[in-house]
Every structure is written in C-alpha cells, then in structure tokens.
Design a protein around this nucleic acid. Structure first.
Length: 570
RNA sequence: CGGGACGUGGCGCAGCUUGGUAGCGCGCAUCGUUCGGGACGAUGAGGCCGUCGGUUCGAAUCCGACCGUCCCGACCA
C-alpha cells in the first residue's frame, strides 16, 4: 500500500474524550473512530489488526480440532426464554421487534444457538465436538469505557464443546486452556489464568485469562510462591487465628453516642479494634432481607454472596428497609438475638468470642458476643474480599492483588443447557444421557486494546509482529528524488511479491512527519531510503521495538527483511 | 441507575461571568522558499455555536426541557 493513497488519519493531539492509552493510540493512529458510546468503526488499519487477531484465533482453535461455524446475530426471544437467560441477562440484552411484532434478541453470546444446532447430535458416536465461530456480540453495558476495552458491539471468538461425560469436558477444557496460553502469547500479552466466578453463564467452574493493567476492571489475587491465582470475586486466603483473650465474656450493652462506623467504635472508649468487631450488613437477596456478618476490618465480596446463595438480584438494603427489619439505623446494627431473618456469616467469624457489635438500637452497642452462643447463624460462608499481603490458601505465600483486563474466559458449563434445551445422546447401552457442554470466549477488540496497553512506548504503539497491520514501512525521505523513488519502488515490489505486507511512505511530507507517524502506528520495521544512504549504497533499518538501527546494503535488504520477520511471519 | 464535567469548522480549544451575530492553534487548498525527526511565508476554503422552546429590539452567551459524550461509583460472561 502506498501511504499517499491510504486512509490513515493520524492525529497530532490526543482525543479529548480518551483516557486509556490504548484508546488514545488507536484513535490517534487512525485505527478506529467512535460512532456512539461503546460503538466504534474500524478503519483500514484497525480492520487489518482485527483480521490478524482472528487469523491467530482460527489457527489455534483449528489446531485443537475446532470446526468453524457462523451463527446468526438475530435470535428469536423464545430460545432465550427457554434457558431463562432473557431474565438473568436482561440488564445487558439488546432486543428489537420485527415487523410482525415478534421480539428478536441481538446475540450477546451463542450458547443457546449452538445448543440448538447441537440437538442433531444424537449418539455418543457423534461426540466429542468442538465448534466455534467468530461473530459479533451485542451487550448493552451500562457504562462502556476506555475505547475498545469495554464496548457494546464487538467481535468474539467463542467455542463450544459437546461431550458425553465430564471427563470428556475436562479434556476439552484443558485443551482450550493450553490453546489460550498460546494465543495470548502470540497476541503479545503475559496472561495469568485465574479461577473465576461463572456469573450468569450457568456453569460450575471457570478460568479467566487476565492481563495486568492499571486500566483493568477486575482485580485478581496472585500468589508469589505457588501457582494459586484467582479473581477477587472468588479468591480466598488463610488468615492467622485471632486469640480472643481480652474483653467481656458475657453480653453487655453499652451506650455509644455518636458512633456510626467501625472506625468510630475503634476509637471509642470501651470500644474494640476492628478485627474484634462484627460488621452487620443488610442485603436483599432476590427480595429476601438477609443479614451478612463480617469481621469489622473485612469487606464483603458481593459476587461471593451471589454465587454462594444462588441469588440473581443482590443489593444492599435501603435505610428504610434496614430500619424496618432491625429497628435501628446503620451504625448500630447487629445480629445478636435476631430471629426470623436469614443470617449469613463469613468464615472468619467462626469460633470468635468477646466480640463487639451493634445492639439494633441507635447509639447502643453490645460487647462480650460469642458468635456461636449468641447469634443464630443460618449459614457459614466465605464472603469476604481478601487483601494484598494475605497468606495464600494453598501454600501460605504472600498474595498480591492487582487490577487486570479479562481477555478470555473459559467455562465448564456442564449439563445446564442440555437440560434446558433437551440435548441428549444415546450412550453405548442405549440410554439417553445429557450432553456436557463447555464454552470458551476471547474478545477480539478487547484483545487488541489489551495488547496495546502492554505494547507501547511514549511514541506510540509497538505491535507484536503478527498483529501489525503492515510489517514493514519504507520511508522515502525525498520522494522527489529520482534515485530514491526507483530504489524504494523496487524494494517495495520485491517485498510485496514475497508476500510481505508493506506500507510505502511516498507522501510529500517532511521526514520528521513520516518518522513520527510510522512510530505512532507501530510498524515493526522501518526502512529509511534517502539520498544520504544511497550515496553509500545502503538503506537504513530501524526496529520499532528496540530502536536499534543498522545500515543494510541495498542488495541485502530483501533477505534481511525476511530474516527479521521469519520467526513468526512467512 | 446515582454523582460530576462537557457539547463552538476535520482535531484540540478560547469566547459565555458583563447579550450586539464567532476567534485561536493544528489540519486542509494554492503559490513560493525549504527538506534525514512534527518547517517558514503569503493567500484562501470551511461553522445550523448539540436540539427544541422561552426571555429580549437582539442569544454561542441568560432561563427551561431534551439529546449526546466522557469521568467516578453501582452494575457487568
């Protein structure tokens, strides 16, 4: 491609509404333009990168036996009603009505549709299967953000596996896990695979692939000593036991005028340190008022609460609902003596005594609380959010907690969809058994953005070679110089003839502009051709990633380009 | 959904407080001088000031409603 003919609208200044680096660089580099909140046009450069990502995805999924499909984006609402997800995913579902008045769902994901096709799998002999497609997804995110990192319309590679039993699922799951590691390596990202919550997918076990990034929206806990890694939504730790050797043994109410928070009570005369308080939260779980008890210095992990109770609609109670349930305001709440209300207690409170908590009367607290003796706990659960520095649950090492971008997620779905949609095969003995499913997703545009977050410098994008929209840019310093034009055109033709994607910068611009643009858009190898070098019979190579420059004889240039690209690209 | 900010040529912004019909930088076009790291000069094109309504002799500017975008939070495979 000749740059003079290409549509590569680079910008000198950062777009006003971009915050994330990948967002700024994608817009400035002429890769994308925004159409509306969370919806972007892919410009020619962006589309080339997108195709490169998809090619990698195809290669790696084909390599583990995947068969590519293309399922529709328009889904009849009825199928979503059958699995109940029209309800459980309603917050992000986009839908429309056709001219007959029938409700159509715009594909947010494709479990339902692949499962529908899979009803034609009728014998164990048909299994296992690994099906996938790369298709548009629509999700009405309440708050799209950070350019391509969180959008409402995007491309996803989603695969689905179908097996006779869970052992088969485990194998396909592991195979995907390995394929995903290769994929993200090729996409230029260091990923950590973490245990995660399956959320609304209806599965039992899932693994997320996370890339560390300050703009990431998920937090993960990673052990420094072993391979334990988990999303904060499921992460646990082993806390050192606390000896409750001080304070009152028996229940004792005391006035605490003005005390509203855990911190207030810590500094109140006769109060207690946070770790020796019981924090009482009031939640509505699918409408049912529920008390959630935590150690005073611990925070609730709402996803754990949702997962552990199987509740879909989880929210903190409003002040008026709290007052109605407990007769007091936040700041003086407690579970001692409470009856008729479900009480969920975090494991960290097990066996604790001589604790302090609210008395369900404003400005009054109670101490000497023995949890087992004084509180009617309905259920003990792991509900707290762990923190950086806590001991690893598996080896006792130190856990590090940091933000990350979720670039892939794989799920063991089990038989949820088989049961909802009637998927079964006959086994060897002629008995109908439900098909065991797995699903595996990678967001294409998010991967592009995440790769940039991990591969850039102050001058612009530094593409991994495989992702680069062009592998080489030939910068013609003086396009008006006949010799330069001739040498650059010959080199361009030879490289293109050898199957290499080359951008020939023949624009009538000053060299500085061309260098800056080439670095901004992140082309891995720049070949500078100008009178100065040609006098000595050489052209100049500059590697984008390292900045290393070298003079190359004109006759050696083609071979040197191939050598540079060889490790990854033909 | 709650809180905050913003909406003015393609991009980035000023003007609004104190109403009088729009300006700067970049980019764009033409010409000239330049040309190995975002050149300089000259000339020029380009704007329903988000939309609708109100106040006023007169609204980018004041008032109201709506729409849109971003940020924080809630939410989210």
């Amino acid at each position: 491609m000749r740059w003079s003919q290409a549509f590569i609208p680079t910008l000198r200044e950062d777009p006003a509404d971009a915050e994330a680096i990948s967002h700024k660089l994608l817009v400035r580099g002429g890769y994308i333009r925004q159409l509306m909140a969370g919806v972007y046009s892919m410009l020619p450069l962006g589309q080339r990168v997108r195709e490169n990502v998809m090619a990698i995805l195809r290669e790696e999924i084909d390599a583990i036996g995947g068969q590519e499909f293309l399922l529709p984006q328009l889904h009849p609402a009825a199928i979503w009603e059958e699995t109940g997800r029209i309800e459980t995913m309603k917050d992000i579902l986009m839908s429309l009505e056709d001219n007959k008045g029938a409700r159509i769902v715009l594909s947010p994901t494709h479990e339902e549709i692949f499962a529908t096709v899979a009803t034609e799998l009728t014998s164990y002999k048909h299994l296992p299967q690994l099906w996938y497609h790369i298709q548009t997804k629509f999700r009405d995110e309440a708050r799209p953000k950070s350019g391509l990192l969180r959008v409402r319309e995007f491309t996803m590679k989603d695969s689905y596996t179908f097996d006779v039993d869970f052992a088969g699922l485990d194998e396909q799951f592991d195979r995907h896990h390995e394929a995903y590691k290769r994929i993200f390596d090729r996409l230029g990202m260091d990923v950590v695979a973490v245990r995660a919550s399956s959320g609304a997918m209806g599965g039992k076990e899932s693994v997320e692939f996370m890339v560390r990034s300050a703009v990431g929206e998920d937090e993960i806990a990673v052990c420094a000593s072993c391979d334990y890694a988990a999303n904060l939504e499921t992460a646990t730790s082993t806390l050192p036991p606390i000896m409750d050797s001080e304070g009152a043994r028996e229940l004792e109410r005391f006035d605490t005028p003005g005390v509203r928070t855990i911190a207030d009570l810590e500094f109140f005369d006769g109060g207690a340190e946070a770790a020796r308080q019981i924090k009482t939260l009031v939640y509505l779980l699918d409408g049912e008022v529920t008390l959630v008890l935590l150690r005073g210095d611990h925070g609730l992990q709402e996803q754990k609460l949702s997962d552990a109770t199987g509740s879909i609609d989880v929210r903190a109670a409003r002040p008026d609902e709290i007052a109605e349930a407990l007769g007091a305001d936040p700041g003086s709440l407690g579970a001692v003596g409470v009856e008729g209300i479900r009480v969920l207690a975090d494991e960290a409170l097990r066996g604790r005594s001589r604790m302090t908590t609210g008395a369900n009367r404003n400005d009054v607290h109670v101490r000497g609380v023995d949890v087992a003796r004084d509180i009617a706990v309905t259920e003990w659960l792991d509900l707290r959010t762990i923190e950086s520095g806590e001991p690893c649950p598996e080896c006792g090492g130190v856990l590090d907690v940091y933000p990350s971008i979720e670039v892939g997620h794989i799920f063991k779905l089990g038989t949820f969809y088989a049961e909802k949609l009637g998927l079964s095969v006959l086994d060897e003995s002629g008995r109908a058994v439900p098909i065991v499913m797995g699903s595996y997703g990678i967001g294409v545009e998010r991967s592009i953005a995440a790769s940039i977050e991990a591969n850039h410098d102050e001058r612009g994008i530094v593409w991994p070679i495989e992702l680069a929209p062009y592998k080489v840019v030939i910068t013609v310093v003086r396009p008006d110089d006949e010799r330069s034009r001739q040498v650059s055109t010959e080199l361009y033709d030879e490289l293109v003839g050898g199957g290499i994607e080359v951008l020939l910068d023949d624009r009538k611009e000053r060299p500085g502009v061309k260098f800056t643009d080439a670095e901004l858009i992140g082309i891995p190898l720049r070949i500078t051709i100008g009178p100065r070098g040609l006098d000595g019979g050489i052209v100049e190579f500059v590697e984008r990633r390292t900045g290393v420059q070298s003079d190359v004889g004109i006759g050696d240039a083609v071979a040197r380009v191939h050598a540079f690209l060889e490790p990854r690209v033909v």
